[in-house]
Nucleic acid binder design. Structure first.
Lengths: 143, 143
DNA sequence: TTAAGTGCAAATTATTTGCAGTAAG
DNA sequence: CTTACTGCAAATAATTTGCACTTAA
């Protein structure tokens, strides 16, 4: 029942990105958006989720698929740390908290409207270019 | 004459960070801040600059030194791209343009006061943490 | 049937580390 | 003196790539 809904959402999601629903992609899509919630993943965390699901997908395929999903606009890649790429199922412009010690990443300011971050007075894109996205990362350290 | 000024600035800079002025550090400092201007470098670009200067510093030392300078608060590390770290001699919070195709990094909105980017309504740092810095990266693609 | 996708292992790339010398305070 | 720094080579770690199958359309 939940499985069924997950598959339905996953399939619709892939379709909305114009991505062919292969077996590995369906599984990854279900793990990413099956429950209808947004999440942040790394290649590693997704590989672990695959393991936990009992299915098998090659590590390289996880990497390639994350990139394919990002290219299709289904995921947003977030670079906070030279050694690991994060992917967010929420592709809108929104700020993130990043814990420098643990490497945890979370949405910032989604605890109600009063803390909606605003970036104002953006300079115009240099001629010959356009803004593809604006990343705002609030780096945190333990006190 | 210029060389002399460069050395003077480099030494003062190291001193302000409480970093011991060794031969490699003096050279790298001179390349980084000798002319009194701010710049963005990568380990690779700095290695090249060392070569051009006619001096020799081990690649590992360039990496270690960039990290040491960052730890001392003399440089600000900027992560825009999983595969390369950038270092900015301007350690203040300020936004950057990043060209996705060439990997070029530049200050944004420093063309006068009218385009001073403002990030407002920052959410409070989660308890037990404090904000170490806020990174704003405006990613550009060619049109 | 055919272009795209997958699995696996090997390759790549930026960066880090171990360790034997060197040098700064 | 003695603790930190440097150079070099080898080690890491995340990611990418090459290539022989598969599979979706």
């Amino acid at each position: 029942m939940t499985q069924m809904q997950d598959r339905r959402r996953a399939e619709a999601w892939l379709q909305s990105g114009g991505v062919r629903p292969t077996r590995p992609r369906m599984l990854l899509a279900a793990l990413l958006v099956g429950d209808g919630r947004h999440r942040h993943v790394t290649a590693e965390s997704l590989v672990d989720a695959v393991k936990d699901s009992g299915e098998k997908v090659a590590v390289a395929t996880v990497y390639n698929t994350l990139k394919a999903f990002s290219d299709a606009g289904l995921l947003r890649e977030i670079t906070v740390n030279g050694t690991r790429s994060y992917f967010d199922t929420d592709t809108s412009n929104h700020a993130h908290f990043y814990w420098e010690d643990t490497g945890e990443l979370a949405d910032a300011g989604n605890d109600g409207a009063e803390h909606q971050i605003a970036v104002s007075n953006l300079p115009p894109a240099p001629s010959g270019t356009e803004i593809s996205k604006v990343d705002v990362v609030i780096r945190l350290r333990r006190t």
